[in-house]
C-alpha cells in the first residue's frame, strides 16, 4: 500500500474542506477501499475518514420515505426495527452484504459512491426510486449511477444520505457469487401501487440497471407467471468464471419471479 495522510474530520464542513486537498479520497467503512489500496490499485494522497462526522449518521423513517445517512453501517440498517417495519427488503438486503465483520464497518454511502457492479445497495436505490443526497445537491438514482464504478459524483463531493421511497411491498433476491459472496445477479423488486420497479445488479457490464420488460409485465400483472414470457437478453451481460451472459440473463428472471412470490404476487 502507498502511504497517505489520514484525516478524520469531526463535522461535514471540515470533511468537505479536507476533500479539497490533493488526491483526496473519502473513506467510510473501508471494506472495499482498503483491499484495493493493498493491491496498490488506488493511491490517494489524503484519506478523509467520514465515520467521525455526526451529520452522516442515522436512519430517519418518514411516512413516504426513508433516509439513511451515508456513514450508517450495514449492521445498523440490519438491526433497525423502524426500518424493518418500513421497508423490510432493505433490512434483508443489508443483512446479506458481505459477512458480519464487513457489515460492522461497511456503510451505505461507501457502497453507493463506489458503485461496484455487483454491490447490493445500488439495486435498492434504483428500485426504490431513490435519491442520493450529497453535500451540495440531490441526485436521482437514474442520474447517479453511470456505469461500472462510475457515478455522477464530482470531485470533492460527498454522499451524505440516501433517500428511498416507501413501497407497498419489495423484495431483494440475491444469487451469490460463491467466492466473493457479492451478487452474481441480484434483483430488487419494488411495488408502488400498480407500478413495479425491477432493478438488477451483478449482471450487466454497465452496472446496475432497471429492466423495462419485466417492469412492464409485472406492472400489468403482478404474478410470477407474468415474468415468463418476458425476453431477458443476454446482450451486455457479464461473462466471467462464475457465469455466462446467458446464465445471468436466466438468473434475472428466476430472481425476479422469486421476488414477486416473496411480495405475495
Amino acid at each position: 500500500m502507498y502511504d497517505f495522510q489520514y484525516v478524520k474530520p469531526a463535522n461535514l464542513y471540515d470533511a468537505v474542506a479536507a476533500m479539497g486537498s490533493e488526491d483526496a479520497q473519502a473513506l467510510s467503512g473501508g471494506q472495499t477501499l482498503t483491499p484495493t489500496m493493498k493491491q496498490r490499485l488506488a493511491q490517494p494522497g489524503t484519506l478523509v475518514d467520514l465515520t467521525g462526522v455526526p451529520e452522516l449518521k442515522g436512519i430517519e423513517v418518514g411516512p413516504d420515505s426513508v433516509t439513511i445517512k451515508a456513514a450508517t453501517r450495514h449492521v445498523e440498517v440490519e438491526r433497525s426495527a423502524e426500518l424493518r417495519a418500513a421497508i423490510p427488503a432493505l433490512v434483508e438486503l443489508a443483512s446479506r452484504i458481505g459477512d458480519p465483520q464487513v457489515r460492522n464497518r461497511g456503510t451505505i454511502g461507501g457502497s453507493v459512491a463506489n458503485n461496484d457492479p455487483s454491490a447490493c445497495y445500488p439495486a435498492a436505490v434504483m428500485a426504490l426510486d431513490g435519491v442520493v443526497v450529497t453535500n451540495n445537491r440531490e441526485i436521482s438514482a437514474s442520474d447517479f449511477f453511470q456505469g461500472v464504478y462510475a457515478t455522477a459524483l464530482e470531485e470533492n463531493e460527498i454522499v451524505t444520505a440516501v433517500r428511498f421511497r416507501r413501497p407497498d411491498s419489495a423484495s431483494y433476491q440475491k444469487f451469490v457469487q460463491p467466492a466473493s459472496r457479492f451478487a452474481l445477479t441480484g434483483v430488487f423488486l419494488a411495488k408502488f401501487g400498480p407500478e413495479a420497479r425491477v432493478a438488477v445488479t451483478g449482471a450487466s457490464e454497465n452496472g446496475v440497471f432497471r429492466h423495462a420488460g419485466l417492469e412492464q409485465a409485472l406492472s400489468a400483472s403482478f404474478t410470477a407467471a407474468a415474468a415468463d414470457p418476458v425476453a431477458v437478453s443476454a446482450d451486455g451481460m457479464i461473462q466471467d468464471l462464475h457465469g455466462t451472459p446467458a446464465y445471468r440473463a436466466h438468473l434475472i428472471k428466476v430472481m425476479t419471479k422469486r421476488a414477486v412470490q416473496a411480495c405475495g404476487g
Binding site: 482498503t34 475518514d49 449492521v75 465483520q101 460492522n104 464497518r105
Partner: peptide, 14 residues
C-alpha cells in the same frame, strides 16, 4: 464489535 483488523487503519482505531 467484531471487525477485520486487516481492513481498518490503525489511525481509524484511535
Amino acid at each position: 464489535e467484531s471487525v477485520k483488523s486487516c481492513s481498518i487503519f490503525a489511525m481509524a482505531a484511535s
